[in-house]
Nucleic acid binder design. Structure first.
Length: 511
RNA sequence: GGCCGGUUCGUCUAUCGGUUAGGACAGCCCCCUUUCACGGGGCAAAGACGGGUUCGAUUCCCGUACCGGCUACCA
């Protein structure tokens, strides 16, 4: 029996989407699309205390930018709506109660203070973080330790309670992870996780199982940090009687910080000067802003590409893949087990490669927007396209286009005359005065013609062209960078070229 | 502490028992370029350690070390 591939990404709207999150989405998406299946986005907004305003919208904006549009989601609709956990609240309590009735879960009335006290009381050198498990549950206030009457009385009095799973003692729970193979846990090592919180909302553990079942999820991908709680979820599938519907699991390796060790966090980005979020993220509560890959000047193709190759490769030396090529080439069994350190230098290389591969037409709009931000107005798109083709190979980030192309449209404010002056003399001054005149009166305005007349004039003045190239560049560009000077002049046009030559000439005279 | 996972150049990685252990990023050098890049060529750089299994281990097994994750009414 081959059931339809249905995978889900289940973010909690508690913050921006960072590289690890996007990579999880990406692998979900690739696997689904590769198998002609559905990609579902379900919002896990169970945690009221950490819910951040605007986060859900942010998630969908990010997915759209990356080109990973869901087939079903709160935004796109679908046959298993609603796709927000907060809107599915009613069903969770029912399943939690069902587990209590079948003896696989129990009510617990312990207050936060009592839990804290328990952790202090049972803390030892060998056991620094005691768990609410089979060793101590009978010493706590729950429906296992209390009589039925006591429990009934507490419930009648509206005493807040949670429902915890009753983990069996010394049983073996195993499953086959698509990446790691057979993974075995002993149930005695796992604590009695809370399934239903006092506010009636499920924890992730209950919600993920109930929703995956309801939405007929066939494959569940998530970060490696979830591996330790996998036995809870496996048991839940079993206790709820859905064992045969259980999805296949895959626990993805973590993305680690570039220096030192540990999971990559947004702090590392701030500290090391690179983005960790897909797009700019402002925490509405703290007002804290984090830079995004998009705003930093990354192309979505490059972002997707670099993420895919962090923990996966196709077995060849190939490193550049488009999304559709990834769908074709992706395979679960080539996903790594170990975590990968994030390397921003390599990330920039991917972006550079994608800029080189992009057509001027496709780069036009983002570059134009960037120039507009600098109050540079481009009147003729075809000119900008020519400029983009000329300078794109020296841009690693989209933002580099500003420095590399603004001088085509606006005269530089500063000229690096300091680089001209040391070797400046009257002969050169005369040459450039005449060059401006020659250019001004020239009939053709092509790269090669400009170069020819420049060299002929230099010869007539008995000057080496090489010594005149740098001054000319600085006159047109303002500094020592950019494409070939005659290419620049050709695009810039006669008027701007002669104006700038004369302008710098006058600056040199007055300095 | 316990449980689970991981370990090849600085970094991302290739290798499905036999290779001069390959590629890419970063670094260094050279060429191209009278700018900056692109491009081309080159240098340097790795199997954590100890036991097995085997004619032969980076590869398979065990142990050790190290790193990571989890150990919340967070996900």
């Amino acid at each position: 029996m081959n059931k339809k591939v249905r995978v889900r990404f289940a973010p909690s709207p508690t913050g921006g989407l960072h590289v690890g999150g996007v990579r999880t989405v990406l692998f979900n998406y690739l696997f689904a699309k590769q198998h002609g299946g559905d990609f579902i986005v379900r919002i896990e907004d169970t945690d009221q205390t950490r819910f951040v305003e605007g986060a859900e919208e942010y998630i969908f904006n990010t997915l759209r930018w990356c080109g990973l549009e869901p087939d079903e989601s709160p935004l796109h609709g679908g046959p298993y709506a609603p796709y927000r956990q907060s809107e599915r609240k009613a069903s969770y309590a029912q399943f939690a109660e069902q587990l209590v009735a079948s003896g696989h879960a129990y009510y617990a009335f312990d207050t936060p203070q009592q839990l804290e006290q328990m952790r202090i009381d049972f803390k030892t050198a060998e056991n620094p973080s005691p768990q609410y498990n089979h060793h101590i549950r009978l010493q706590m206030r729950n429906s296992l330790s209390l009589s039925a009457d006591e429990v009934a009385a507490l419930k009648n009095a509206n005493t807040p309670f949670v429902i915890r799973i009753k983990m069996p003692v010394n049983e073996s729970v195993s499953f086959t992870d698509m990446i790691r193979g057979e993974v075995v846990f002993n149930t005695s090592q796992v604590d009695d996780k809370v399934l239903l919180k006092a506010d009636g909302m499920p924890t992730y553990h209950l919600a993920v199982v109930v929703d995956d079942y309801a939405m007929k999820i066939s494959h569940a991908f998530r970060g490696e940090e979830w591996l330790p709680s996998a036995p809870v979820h496996i048991l839940l599938w079993k206790y709820l009687g859905w064992e045969n519907e259980m999805p296949q699991w895959a626990h993805l390796p973590l993305i680690l910080k570039p220096d030192g060790n540990g999971k990559l966090s947004k702090r590392d980005g701030d500290r090391l000067g690179f983005p960790v979020f897909a797009m700019d993220w402002t925490d509405a509560k703290t007002g804290e802003k984090s830079l995004g890959f998009k705003e930093r000047g990354f192309l979505p193709e490059a972002f997707i590409n670099l993420l895919a190759l962090l923990g996966w490769n196709d077995g060849t030396d190939r490193e550049i893949f488009s999304l559709s090529e990834l769908i074709a080439a992706f395979s679960m069994d080539r996903v790594h087990k170990g975590g990968a350190k994030f390397d921003f230098e390599k990330a920039k290389w991917y972006n550079q490669e994608w800029i080189k591969r992009s057509t001027a037409a496709s780069l036009l709009h983002p570059v134009k927007a960037l120039l507009n931000e600098q109050l540079i107005v481009v009147e003729d798109n075809s000119v900008l396209e020519k400029v983009i083709d000329l300078v794109k190979e020296r841009c690693t980030l989209l933002s580099d286009f500003v420095a590399q192309s603004s001088f085509f449209f606006v005269a530089p404010v500063e000229f690096d005359t300091a680089s001209i002056k040391p070797k400046w003399n009257d002969a050169k001054n005369l040459f450039f005065i005449e060059l401006a005149n020659v250019f001004e009166s020239s009939i053709v305005w092509q790269t090669t013609d400009l170069e020819t007349s420049f060299k002929e004039l230099a010869a007539a003045h008995q000057l080496k062209p090489g010594e005149l190239m740098l001054p000319l560049r600085i006159m047109l560009v303002g500094g020592k960078f950019g494409p070939g000077v005659f290419d620049i002049a050709a695009i810039m046009g006669k008027k701007a070229t002669t104006e700038r030559i004369r302008k710098v000439l006058s600056i040199l005279e007055h300095e």
